[in-house]
Amino acid sequence: MARTSREQRNRRNRSYSYYDYSLLFLTLFLVGFGLIMIYSTSSYSAQLVKNDSMYYLKRQGISAVLGIIAMLIVSKLNYKMLLGKMPILNIKPVTALYIVSILLQVYVLFFGVEINHAKRWISLGPLGTFQPSDLSKVATVLFVSYIVYMAPKKINNITGFFRVGVYISPLIVLIGKENMSTAIVICGIMVGICFVASKKKGYFFAAGSIIVAIGALYLMLGEGYRMERVQIWLDVENHEKGFQILQGLYAIASGGLTGTGLGRSMQKLGYVPEAQNDMIFSIICEELGLFGAVTVILLFALLIWRLFIIAINAPDLYGGLITSGILVHVALQVIINVAVVTNSIPSTGIPLPFISYGGTSIAVMLVEMGIALSVSNQIKYER
């Protein structure tokens, strides 16, 4: 009888590993919805230009499948492996990834493929192109989290914050040369992780003011097309280059409450150039209406909520900071993309996570979700 009671107590006190299936299913649903919308928005132009209405869908589908496989594999690995030593190079994987990201950004500046007057891609031959700035976002999440994790008390003052900024500045400068919007996202990720880790929040107002001032100065003294985007934003109806944004606004307005119906957009028929990319949210609004647009935003809100739950229950500080960085990354891209499409801010090249066309983007975002799931898988609970 005593033995039976002891076995029952042991069963009651046994700990189990958690796995956030809600985050997994939300991610898979957004990927599936994104593939549907990519086909809907791109089938006409793909048939016209590529003679294959499923051209963009097939390419995105391959990247999505590979990304999902990578996500599931990463989710079952222990994220603490990133802090171990690599056997040959005697360097931590998290540091190696950051160094590789810097080297890839240097390579892009000299040997990158130029598309639409921007040199942001590396040619992979028949496999297409690779955008290393997407990898740099993951590297920033992991490396900033590592720096803060190694000396968490230093981040309680502005000196510690700028110390982190010094570590990340080479990557920000290299990316900002050709891709200011991604540089802004990386700055946002860095600030977000530091804000979460710091016990003192007041100095972030001063630090934020300095960062905004530097950004404004770079905007005014940098390439002319950046300032031109501000001018387009201020007068989109009359500016000669405001066509894409204006047509996107027409798409949103014509969608009404319930939309014109899936696949029945008129603006995607050449009026919104490359609608499957950064402007895909405008076609969602047109075809699915306000109801569809709000539903998509709520799905992202739920995904961000699940990341928040993982972050506050993470088994250690590093896991919590990683998940917080991923949360900030997703939230920033959703906010910026929706704001650009609705002309609330000047135009930038930030895709809508999991939905906009872009093989590198969706694959990297799925790997990030795999890392978040890996953190969740290390959470223990008793029952």
Results as ranks from 00 to 15, higher is better:
220 M>H: 08
205 F>G: 05
321 L>Q: 07
245 I>R: 00
368 E>C: 05
367 V>G: 11
129 T>M: 08
177 K>I: 15
6 R>H: 11
57 L>Q: 04
290 L>S: 04
297 I>V: 13
169 S>M: 15
169 S>Q: 05
381 Y>S: 07
244 Q>K: 03
371 I>L: 12
174 L>K: 04
63 S>Y: 06
112 G>K: 03
255 G>Q: 06
246 L>Y: 13
256 G>W: 08
230 V>F: 14
25 F>K: 08
179 N>M: 05
100 V>E: 00
232 I>M: 11
32 G>I: 04
114 E>S: 14
271 Y>C: 06
142 L>R: 09
352 L>R: 04
17 S>Y: 05
218 Y>E: 14
182 T>Y: 04
181 S>H: 01
30 L>C: 12
308 F>Q: 02
162 F>I: 14
150 M>N: 14
80 K>C: 03
9 R>W: 08
361 S>I: 12
278 D>M: 04
232 I>F: 04
225 Y>L: 13
119 K>S: 09
65 V>R: 06
297 I>E: 07
334 V>E: 03
258 T>K: 09
123 S>G: 15
13 N>C: 03
115 I>H: 00
252 I>P: 00
152 P>Q: 00
141 V>G: 01
294 V>N: 06
116 N>V: 05
252 I>V: 15
189 I>L: 13
319 G>Q: 03
333 Q>F: 03
183 A>I: 07
4 T>R: 07
139 A>I: 07
268 K>V: 03
227 M>T: 12
78 N>Y: 06
366 L>F: 06
297 I>K: 03
50 K>W: 03
340 V>I: 09
43 S>N: 08
102 I>L: 15
102 I>F: 08
159 T>G: 10
44 Y>T: 08
298 L>C: 13
180 M>R: 13
119 K>H: 09
212 V>D: 08
60 Q>K: 08
86 M>Q: 10
146 Y>L: 11
332 L>R: 02
234 L>K: 15
288 L>T: 05
380 K>V: 09
220 M>F: 13
309 I>A: 06
271 Y>N: 01
82 L>S: 01
238 N>A: 06
175 I>Q: 07
246 L>W: 13
119 K>F: 02
139 A>G: 10
108 V>M: 11
372 A>P: 10
299 L>R: 01
40 S>K: 01
